[in-house]
Write a protein that binds this DNA or RNA. Structure first.
Lengths: 236, 236
DNA sequence: ACCTGAACACCGTTCAAGT
DNA sequence: ACCTGAACACCGTTCAAGT
């Protein structure tokens, strides 16, 4: 009774049934690997193992690795924050919301962050993000041209800074620690005559990835948008 | 007379003399390759070929590839804009200057941009950049805590957005074109009832890497810094 | 002491061969 | 039609062997 059904194929073989492979099945396996091993673990070899299939059979369903990664990006996006992106009615709060959701999402999948930041996926989640940001800019009082530019500036800022923070997380442990420590060690020993400002402020210097920085930057950019918007609203 | 000196070692061998290899010689070769083939061409194999040496002999002078890349980053930085980083006396103009120099430099070496943005090199060029920015923030009228945060925000913004733009440049040609075209093709066909703002503005949408965006973002951030600085100066 | 050669453990990708 | 096996052209890196 104990090892009844799975007995024969116990440890070694149990081959996948024919036709059981598909894009969605492969993406599900990729998600699992990304969640478990991070992104550097996402190889065709690992996918094959996870799927109990030959690694090269994936090529029947995806043109190449780029094709697979783009599909994975959109799936993760929708799952990770698709449902949370609901307007609050306040443009500034809305921009804060989308920016923070993207930021958190990138930090959750740091190995994919740079690709998420740089690629255009042409898929529903992306359409929805753009629509959401454009609408907030309109409600902020920006005219059409300003809204388009502000949306891009705001989006590029959010994705770029988030990807930078995420990439700090993917550095080899030793490099990350050395880099972080530099701001509390090397920078405190610089000569005051050559680097007076560093010497004066050396106790206060923050590492590049300090968690408070994102919000500071976000609020500064929101201030700048608000001040441009105010100029318009003043005409009311 | 024609092929006199170089005759014997014409095509095939001409081995490097012993002890002629060093960190600086290797970095010079790496610069040459980076300039010529971009960064994806910078492999130990290519370095060996460029140096007329065995690829593995590089390991006598650099711990690993990361060690080599960090050294290369600082060398390129110093050479590319080290001499141009001179204060104008105007804090806002100074921040504009350093931001644009970094931006241009990243676009010149797009394959290294992400590493340049995320790593702390602990070397003179980096010290100098930090000192320069801190001094500008002080002259803008920010207090110590604000200056430290503003420097980080400003630096992270500059490096992150520049690295994002640079990484767009390193995409495979076909992916880059498809991604750019999406904003003038797919986005113009979205249904107006579901995406009213995209539909209304679809003629104006810019690709992610539009060259005007960096300056727009930069001026917005400078505005935000100026407005915080003004609050202080108002007390004068 | 310095450099080379051969090998290792990976990658993504191609393609002929099996079922 | 779908999947596998073997091979290819790369990576970075290690280490014993040559000079």
């Amino acid at each position: 009774m104990a090892a009844a059904g799975a007995d024969k194929s116990a440890a070694p073989k149990k081959r996948r049934p024919r036709d059981s492979l598909s894009r969605s099945v492969i993406i599900a396996a990729a998600e699992k690997i990304a969640e478990r091993d991070g992104l550097e673990g996402l190889t065709f070899g690992a996918l094959g193992k996870e799927l109990n299939a030959h690694s090269t059979s994936i090529y029947r369903h995806f043109r190449d690795k780029d094709d697979l990664v783009l599909e994975l990006i959109d799936t993760l996006r929708a799952k990770s924050y698709g449902a949370d992106l609901v307007s609050t009615g306040d443009w500034r709060e809305d921009l804060r919301l989308i920016s923070r959701l993207i930021h958190e999402h990138y930090l959750r999948y740091p190995g994919l962050a740079m690709q998420m930041a740089a690629r255009t996926t042409r898929r529903p989640t992306e359409f929805h993000n753009v629509e959401f940001a454009l609408d907030a800019m309109r409600r902020a009082g920006l005219d059409d041209d300003e809204a388009v530019v502000a949306t891009r500036v705001f989006g590029n800022f959010t994705r770029a800074v988030s990807a930078l923070e995420a990439s700090l997380q993917t550095l080899p442990e030793q490099a990350r620690l050395m880099d972080e420590m530099a701001w509390t060690v090397e920078y405190r020993q610089l000569p005051a005559d050559e680097y007076p400002n560093i010497a004066r402020l050396s106790e206060k210097l923050l590492p590049l990835g300090d968690p408070s920085l994102f919000n500071h930057a976000l609020e500064m950019l929101l201030d700048a948008i608000a001040s441009r918007a105010t100029n318009e609203v003043a005409a009311d």
